[in-house]
């Protein structure tokens, strides 16, 4: 009797399994995009992220699991602006998934439509080894990038899975309101930081810094992707000392990432007591969200300049007279 029942039971179970709607398989190049796809797609997507969040995004070592994931996915999402140009074209060519090749509905470049900064007018490599023809590619750290990337993701997910469009829109709305609140906070921080100065190692924080009105007075790399020479380091130190004499007491953080040549950064920091080393993440670290990461970056910058970080609620904002 038990055996008689088990056959129909297995059949019903297998039918139920088949009836469950398949999730969209999504591969994202960086965790920033992976997090936003998960937020917008909810339980309708299964996301694989290639970078873990700690790498230099220009030099990612691909693994076999990445090739397998791209070969099976429904949607491939990248930042674009040639941020991932060292490894994405080869990955797509090797994985041979026709659905996600450039130009197909399953290929999404989230930076499309966002105005890029520092678009080079001359593409000679005399202007740097890391020359990005369409502009600075580290657009994921722009204050408004979260909403822009999420909008692009919403449009693409809705196209690939129209049945769940309403759910994606609802998820996006929730993220949008959280992002707008955070952006308002960052804008108030920008009001406090506007006109401050900094030194950077590489240009990965350009969007973040300009969004806050912070001026970069020197770049430790003489040109993007070119390591500093002793002569150039001496010039940077001279620039810093000149800024220090013009603004006595002003803080000048030297902003860098984990993979930069931080012995050069240390030399600049040691050149003046007004300089401090400020190590920032240029991608979302593992287990964090894009909003968490941006919040953390802004808090670190506020700390580096010694200004109070704005409270979460605008109503709780102290009067300007009390803060200064």
């Amino acid at each position: 009797m038990q055996r008689l029942l088990s056959v129909p039971l297995l059949l019903i179970l297998s039918l139920c399994a088949q009836a469950a709607p398949a999730k969209l398989k999504v591969v994202a190049t960086i965790p920033d995009i992976g997090n936003l796809v998960q937020i917008v797609g909810g339980d309708k997507v299964e996301v694989t992220t290639i970078c873990s969040g700690t790498e230099n995004v220009h030099a990612v070592r691909l693994k076999p699991s990445h090739i397998v994931a791209v070969s099976r996915c429904d949607l491939f999402c990248q930042v674009g602006l040639s941020l991932e140009h060292a490894w994405v074209p080869g990955l797509l060519q090797t994985a041979r998934n026709a659905k996600v090749q450039p130009g197909q509905p399953g290929h999404l470049t989230v930076s499309d439509g966002m105005p890029a900064l520092d678009v080079p007018s001359d593409l000679s490599r005399q202007n740097g080894a890391d020359l990005h023809p369409d502009g600075n590619p580290h657009i994921n750290l722009a204050q408004g990038a979260g909403r822009h990337m999420a909008q692009r993701i919403l449009a693409t997910l809705s196209e690939l899975d129209p049945a769940d469009k309403a759910l994606f829109e609802a998820n996006y709305k929730k993220f949008e309101s959280a992002s707008l609140a955070a952006e308002a906070r960052w804008k108030r921080l920008g009001d406090r930081l506007k006109g401050q100065q900094c030194v950077v190692y590489h240009t990965e924080f350009t969007y973040l810094l300009r969004g806050l009105g912070i001026e970069t007075i020197a770049t430790i790399e003489p040109k993007p992707g070119v390591p500093p020479t002793p002569g150039h380091l001496a010039e940077v130190i001279q620039t810093v000392q000149s800024a220090v004499s013009n603004h006595p007491g002003a803080k000048i953080p030297v902003i860098t990432a984990a993979w930069s040549n931080n012995s050069s950064v240390d030399r600049i920091v040691e050149s003046s007591p007004q300089c401090t080393k400020c190590l920032l993440a240029s991608m979302v670290p593992k287990g964090k969200t894009w909003l968490d990461t941006m919040e953390d970056l802004h808090k670190r910058l506020a700390e580096a300049y010694g200004v109070p970080y704005p409270d979460p609620e605008p109503e709780a904002e102290p009067a300007p007279a009390e803060t200064h």
Partner: peptide, 11 residues
């Protein structure tokens, strides 16, 4: 066999 550190540039 190849392995890299968390930054991907040392290994």
């Amino acid at each position: 066999y190849g392995t890299s550190d968390e930054t991907g540039i040392s290994g």
